[in-house]
Amino acid sequence: MKLFKRSEFVIAAILLLAMVVIGLINPAFWQLDNIFSLLRSNVIIGIMALGVLIVMISGGIDVSFPAFAVAAMYLTVKGMIYFGYDGVIVPFIAATIMGMLFGCLNAFFVYKFRMIPLIVTLGTGSMVRGFLLGIVGTSMININKMPDALIDFAKTEVISMDKADGTHFGLTAMVLIYVGLAILVHLVLRYTMIGRSVFALGGDEEAAKRVGFDVRKTIFFIYCFAGMLAGFGGLLHSGMIWLANPRDFVGLELDVIAAVVLGGASIFGGRGSVLGTMLGVFMLVMVKNSLIIMKVETTWQRVVVGIVIVIATAMTAWRDRKRNA
């Protein structure tokens, strides 16, 4: 019986319902190539959402990760071109470390000055983006210059198929990376003391200190881990779209936070799950992408996303009110 009470179950149920509805409106939704492309669209938002999930469980909020992601991505790609390096592993390590360093900056302000995470991450985000565009450069690196190794890596597919008319389609292997990272985050949150300390911090910071958690370590872990995921996701994104654009990811924070909230994480901290977040991300991406299938003009996308956020948050508010009563 417990299963039905879990928020993941509710989200999954709503998700299934939405899929059925969309499928009824246009059966093309269920075609394999559409499903594959949907899954592909999950990858980057999903990786970022994992980072935001960790921050949100701890009771914070992060709006700086798009800036961190784009900075790590652009600097790495620029570096690769500068050094003429064409590989995969080293660049990803570099981008991840850069993300981590940016994350340290957040952690420093949040821990040292006890500043509200929203304000801190607003500041660091605009700083990092300003630094990138103001000092590093504003020009796009397009397919001509993009390191081939990155593009080839991101082209890897787990399933490759041909349609009846001969066109090729497939499921990108990046989905596996996303799922792998999700499992990793789940394991860290569920089975390590540092992961549990994130929940403890989000539940009651004072109690966490009294019990003997090292709050500083936890805060640094949270923001650095979120930064790492952002850096990694940023570079992966450029490989997947064959382009390194220093103006990329503007406004992504809104989508990602919305997805995490849709996934049942509490903005007050202490609650949230990887599975829920993945479902939330899928829901958001699906709604966005399916508007075309449902023959709604693309300009309506943001309106629909906004309404979805409002409805989802209104539902959680309603649920929580019943719990409090």
Binding site: I61, L254, A258, G306, V310, T313
Partner: peptide, 13 residues
């Protein structure tokens, strides 16, 4: 924060 995040999207949309 969530309400105005949502409506902000709607207005810009």
């Amino acid at each position: 924060i969530l309400a105005t995040l949502g409506t902000g999207q709607v207005f810009i949309g």
